[in-house]
């Protein structure tokens, strides 16, 4: 039995369907991310789990128990809001303590738990600070401590890191992951940042316009995207129009001057999708010319014009000499690094 289960959940605002047929089973202790562009219904789904919105249809179950009928105050979930929603008239310690007071935890135990929660998020010594006198990262940690101190069965995070600068965000990601691992709290994170989703989650739910596009581990969704949308949303991709050449035996899959043995079960024209870092420069392959070359520290980014349109190539900066702008090159990739899609694609 899954720990948290969303069963064909749906939400309508008037005539507009915002979440549609959302089914997901979350195991205990799992870290799940909802990933999708703005307005795809991530927050709406999270708020339905939290109980702030009533689903139009479908069910939410926690350990097999129906959750939709339970008051939000009685669900026992920990929530970190995008705006943190700290209580500005309370100190950090009072903020964290609030949930325990509501649960009538005895005073001595409360003090102890507040202290250890603040220590866990690295805010020991900030007990008496008011939120207004804390940095964004510190406020975010208070919000996290406030949500975790009640020992929630599920932790819901709505873009908690989006207000932080890049460096702090990375630090908080690592910290969040460590805390979650140590406590083993089942966690649902909402984000529109694919790097965040990939570095934190056990599984990612890629959403588009209220529908689930794919559920899978970060590696699965990145390397075997279920749809063109998923492929494009998770990092850069190159698309090539390809056709099957049946004049030769065995038939070959051809894109411009690149070709490879055609996989079984392919009939008509298809689209080949390859990640930029999986394309290499070779002696034979798709003929192209390098238009721009950008140095990015640990890697080079090449923009090439080929017979099949613009191609982006990423090469590791491993000390090898790299082609320069204007060079004529051949682009090649391994068959297992590409995914096929289109009218004739079997998969």
């Amino acid at each position: 039995m899954p720990f948290l289960e969303l069963d064909r959940l749906g939400k309508q605002f008037g005539a507009q369907t915002v979440v549609d047929e959302f089914s997901l089973a979350v195991a205990k202790g799992e870290f799940i991310s909802f990933l999708g562009p703005s307005g795809c219904g991530k927050t709406t789904t999270l708020q339905m789990i939290a109980g702030f919105l009533d689903p139009s249809c479908g069910a939410i179950r926690l350990e097999g128990r129906e959750l939709t009928a339970v008051q939000p105050a009685k669900r026992g979930l920990g929530i970190v809001f995008q705006s943190y929603a700290l209580f500005p008239h309370m100190t950090a310690a009072e903020n964290v303590s609030f949930g325990l007071e509501m649960r009538r935890v005895p005073r001595a135990e409360r003090v102890e738990r507040v202290r250890s929660a603040l220590t866990m998020v690295g805010l020991a010594g900030y007990e008496d600070r008011y939120p207004k006198r804390m940095s964004g990262g510190q406020q975010q940690r208070v919000a996290l401590a406030r949500a975790l101190v009640i020992r929630p069965s599920v932790l819901l995070l709505d873009e908690p890191l989006s207000n932080l600068d890049a460096k702090l965000r990375e630090e908080m990601q690592i910290e969040l992951r460590q805390i979650q691992r140590n406590l083993g709290t089942t966690t649902v994170l909402v984000t529109h940042d694919q790097n965040e989703a990939m570095s934190l989650s056990d599984r990612i739910v890629v959403m588009s316009q209220g529908r689930i596009e794919q559920i899978g581990t970060p590696q699965e969704t990145y390397e075997r995207p279920a749809s063109a949308f998923v492929a494009r949303f998770l990092g850069r991709t190159n698309d090539f129009a390809a056709a099957i050449d049946r004049t030769v035996a065995p038939p070959r899959l051809v894109a411009g001057s690149w070709s490879a043995p055609a996989p079984a079960g392919i009939a008509g024209p298809v689209t080949i999708t390859v990640r930029p870092e999986r394309i290499g420069f070779a002696d034979a392959g798709l003929a192209a010319r390098i238009v721009t070359r950008i140095f990015q520290g640990d890697h080079w980014l090449f923009q090439c014009v080929s017979e099949c349109g613009t191609v982006i190539v990423i090469r590791q900066n491993d000390g090898q000499p790299q082609p320069v702008e204007g060079d004529a090159v051949h682009l090649a990739w391994r068959v297992e690094d590409m995914s096929l899609r289109g009218a004739g694609a079997a998969a």
Binding site: F52, P72, A85, F87, G99, M102, R146
Partner: peptide, 18 residues
Amino acid sequence: VDPQIENAALSLGASPLT
């Protein structure tokens, strides 16, 4: 006042009166 603040309190188990 942050519009989410009442939801935050609600999720921590506070009653409407509280």
